Every structure is written in structure tokens, then in C-alpha cells.
Simulated assay, not measured.
Amino acid sequence: MDDPSPSPAAIQAVVHQGVPLAAAWGIEVVSAADGAALCRLPWREELLRPGATVSGPALMGLADVAMWAALLGITGGKDESLTTSLTIHFLRRLAPGPVLAEARILKHGRIIVGEVLIRSEASEEVAAHVTPSWTAVSPARRPSR
């Protein structure tokens, strides 16, 4: 039986088209299936803040993209859900280098709740814990004549 889930490359193409900043940062979708996704943010000097630490806005953007990739993995690559909240707890600083975000959907319905763990590619230690929520958006209804 064929797996109806789109490939990580197909999901990455949707993400890059839908969020041009993700393309500019070079965010990669490593995997996305079964309500989970792994995304990679390559090393980019412009994403650092003073003190040679990966910036909070870069980590929040990566987490948001990873959550969307997880959703795209279960919706056949078509999803127009919108972020309604994103809470992030910075647990430790991330030194310069590639960053990974592991997202998983905890609840999928009209309200979607997830969890994203962010870490350095070189470490298993979680550097940030993110709890995003999204609102599912239904395709627009055509007016009746």
C-alpha cells in the first residue's frame, strides 16, 4: 500500500513558498509524517544575537515552521491553518551551528496543539521547549447564486 504522505522535499517546497523567510534562512524539512516533523536550520551568522547565541526570533520561526511541516505531513501537503499562540521557554543558549526542531502534534481538530523541542545538531540537550497552538482553517466557501 502506498503512503499518501508527501515527501519531505515536497513539504519543504510548500513551506518555502508559503513562508519565504523559511526559504531565505534555508530551513530544511528532514522528515514529516504521522503528525511529527524534524526541521533543520543551517548555520547562518545573521541569525546570531550579541554573545554569539542563536537569536530567539530565529528559534521561534524555526519552531513555527516545524509545526506547520508536521501538519502538512498529515494533511497531504495542503494546510492553511494559522498560528494562534506560541509559548517558548529558552532552557540554554545555543552556540553557533545548525539547529534542529522536532515537532509533534498533540491534538488535531479545530484547535491544533503541538510541542516542539529545539536543540543544537551537535547535542541531544534540549535548548528550547515550545508549545504552539493553531486554528484549523476550512477552505473558503463559494457564495451560492
Rank of each mutant, 00 (worst) to 15 (best):
I11D: 02
I11N: 00
I11T: 02
V15L: 15
H16K: 13
G18R: 03
G18T: 08
G18S: 15
P20M: 13
A23K: 12
A23W: 00
A23Q: 13
G26F: 03
I27F: 05
V30P: 04
V30W: 03
S31Y: 01
A32R: 06
A33I: 01
A37I: 08
L38V: 14
C39K: 01
R44P: 03
E45C: 03
L47C: 09
L48T: 04
R49F: 00
R49V: 03
A52S: 11
A52M: 10
V54F: 04
A58Y: 01
G61V: 00
A66W: 00
A66C: 05
M67G: 13
A70K: 13
A70M: 13
L72Y: 04
G73Y: 06
I74A: 04
T75M: 08
D79A: 15
T83E: 06
T84F: 09
T87W: 05
I88Q: 08
L91H: 11
R92A: 14
R93E: 14
P96E: 07
L100P: 05
L100A: 05
E102N: 09
E102M: 06
I105Q: 04
I105C: 09
L106H: 08
K107E: 15
G109N: 13
V113C: 11
G114Q: 11
E115D: 13
L117E: 14
L117F: 01
I118P: 03
E121P: 00
A122N: 08
A122Y: 01
A122L: 06
S123T: 06
E125Q: 15
E125R: 15
A127P: 12
A127N: 11
T131V: 11
S133L: 10
